[in-house]
């Protein structure tokens, strides 16, 4: 990948991004379309982060939404507590103007806490694998959702809100499509980090674990260390997607992070192809759009989506992309972007 091409892609992408923001700023894009774009971003982060564990490392995590929940609640609590004016005094803990700068920090803190929650799965993974580990991940998802259901500080099963006010507060100071900006920025950031991880000899340690864990351990890969890093990295990014999700919707409740949400993540990863980053990105886009199209069908969509999964597994079990990247199908892209 030449320096020149790399520049082209950065400048080209930057212009596109700026154009999108300007159009959003001047209401040239419908709010609904904006929200779909943001959901796509959230789902891309959610799916690609899951693909670290399920795609590259070859473990089967089915409770990824639990970590999304941790990030969503931690960042929501922080932004609401810090930036909502007190009823009596009319003052918030920190001046609302600071929310503009602190927002990304709060999202990242949500990610860090979710990363630490990832230890709940990482530590059992030292001794347990495959089906047994999958069961542990489901249990962790349940534990997190149940805990949130029973925590009155975060509204229990009623959920938690107030994040919209914080965003409105930010928009009141300087008008700007903050959420659109941050969702896209974090999406690019997440893909960028995962790609850097997975193209390094260090990160490839998790691919070695997938292909032959015994050989990996005997050939000098510290498999426990790599599992720890992979699970924490993966759940940390899920936490970031959760924080963004919460602030896009402005409302969270434990039910949004149930096993059903984890299943959506699995559908995206397996649809896209395990071990393909561009596959996860493409399927997250397709999946989000499909969900929107099928929305009028209500509950019926949960017949159609699993049906699709069955068909994919029957006729293309490796997913849309298998372990190939876009550049394997369109070799010319290699000039612009190194996928592996």
């Amino acid at each position: 990948m030449g320096k020149y091409q790399q520049k082209t892609i950065i400048i080209g992408g930057g212009i596109l991004f700026a154009l999108l923001l300007i159009m959003a700023q001047f209401k040239m894009i419908d709010l609904y379309v904006q929200s779909v774009i943001m959901f796509i971003g959230v789902n891309i982060i959610f799916a690609t982060s899951l693909s670290i564990v399920n795609g590259y490392m070859g473990e089967f995590s089915c409770g990824h939404a639990g970590f999304m929940a941790v990030g969503a609640y931690v960042s929501s609590l922080m932004s609401v507590m810090l930036f909502t004016p007190d009823k009596a005094t009319g003052l918030s803990v920190l001046p609302p103007s600071m929310s503009i700068y602190l927002f990304p920090v709060i999202i990242i803190i949500g990610g860090v806490v979710a990363g630490i929650a990832g230890l709940l799965v990482a530590i059992p993974s030292f001794k347990t694998r495959d089906d047994y580990l999958a069961i542990i991940t489901i249990a962790v998802n349940f534990i997190i959702v149940t805990a949130l259901n029973n925590m009155e500080v975060v509204g229990g099963s009623r959920g938690y809100m107030g994040m919209k006010k914080v965003i409105y507060g930010m928009e009141g100071i300087i008008k700007f499509p903050y959420m659109l900006f941050w969702v896209i920025t974090f999406t690019i950031f997440a893909i960028f980090l995962i790609r850097r991880f997975i193209t390094s000899t260090y990160g490839k340690g998790i691919i070695a674990i997938k292909q032959d864990e015994v050989a990996a351990e005997i050939m000098s890969v510290d498999t426990n260390h790599m599992k720890l890093v992979a699970f924490m990295f993966s759940s940390g990014l899920a936490g970031i997607s959760g924080g963004l999700f919460a602030h896009v919707i402005g409302y969270v409740n434990p039910g949004s992070f149930s096993i059903l949400k984890s299943t959506e993540g699995l559908v995206m990863v397996y649809l896209g192809g395990m071990g393909s980053l561009s596959g996860s990105v493409i399927s997250a886009i397709l999946f989000t759009i499909l969900l929107e199209i099928l929305r009028p069908l209500q509950i019926l969509k949960w017949v159609i989506i699993p049906l699709m999964l069955i068909l994919v597994m029957q006729f293309r079990p490796e997913g849309l992309m298998g372990d190939k990247e876009l550049s394997d199908f369109f070799p010319k892209l290699k000039k612009y972007f190194k996928f592996k």
């Binding site: 000899t201 260090y202 490839k204 340690g205 990996a216 050939m219 000098s220 890969v221």
Partner: peptide, 10 residues
Amino acid sequence: RLSQHYHLGY
């Protein structure tokens, strides 16, 4: 490459 994982130097 991967069997040098024990000494990556970074």
